[in-house]
Nucleic acid binder design. Structure first.
Length: 197
DNA sequence: GCAGGGATGAACT
DNA sequence: GTTCATCCCTGCA
């Protein structure tokens, strides 16, 4: 089983994988950008979809790590997660925002899908980035090591300063500081007021 | 059958 | 900066 991708061991707990994903480039069919915002979710805390146990919707999170979990939120937005931990545990990292890269990585395609010029808002939010990358239910429970997914390691020459803080859009376990962002990024779904990691 | 949701965009103060 | 309608699917009574 492949659990290490882009230099990250996905069998680790989600709150350890999530900060390591900041700065990694995510591409879907060659379209994407640098990850600048993530959130960790785990079976053992009530904000997680897997807190209630395995269901037809969340079964992918109970599968092997290094795969995708895509779900529909509020009936119209898709959200992309990366599965973590050992198989059967139930944990994942929600990808919340990307920094769009040069047109070599499909900037034009993202603009067309979003019908929006502003780079800043192209991928600033889990629903938005799925729209920009064309992620839907078809992308649920797929290995991140294979097409259409591609993960490229962080640029070692580029320093990444990170902040950790409370997660967004949840009503339970709101105090857990499991949201991770690149400090100072212009491409976040919401500004971060948290502590330096 | 029904309540509520890991969100967004527009319309506001 | 803030609230508000809206999307429809999921899980549980």
């Amino acid at each position: 089983m492949i659990t290490t991708l882009a230099g990250i061991d996905f069998s680790a707990p989600a709150h350890e994988v999530a900060p390591q994903l900041i700065g990694v480039t995510l591409l879907v069919n060659g379209v994407g950008g640098r990850i600048v915002e993530t959130e960790a979710y785990d079976r053992e805390e009530p904000a997680s979809h897997c807190f209630i146990g395995e269901t037809p919707r969340n079964f992918a999170m109970f599968g092997p790590p290094g795969r995708s979990y895509v779900y529909q939120s509020h009936g119209l937005h898709w959200c992309l997660n990366f599965v973590c931990r050992e198989p059967g545990h139930g944990a994942g990292v929600l990808i919340r925002a990307l920094e769009p890269l040069a047109d070599a990585h499909g900037l034009a395609a993202m603009r067309a899908r979003r019908q929006l010029e502003d780079e800043r808002l192209l991928c600033a939010g889990p629903g938005r980035l799925c729209q920009a990358l064309g992620v839907t239910r078809q992308h649920n429970n797929l290995p991140l090591s294979e097409a259409p997914f591609l993960l490229l390691p962080r640029d070692p020459a580029r320093e990444v300063a990170m902040l950790a803080g409370p997660r967004i859009g949840i009503s339970k376990a709101v105090d857990l500081p499991w949201r991770f962002v690149e400090a100072g990024s212009r491409f976040l779904s919401k500004p971060m007021r948290g502590s330096v990691l």
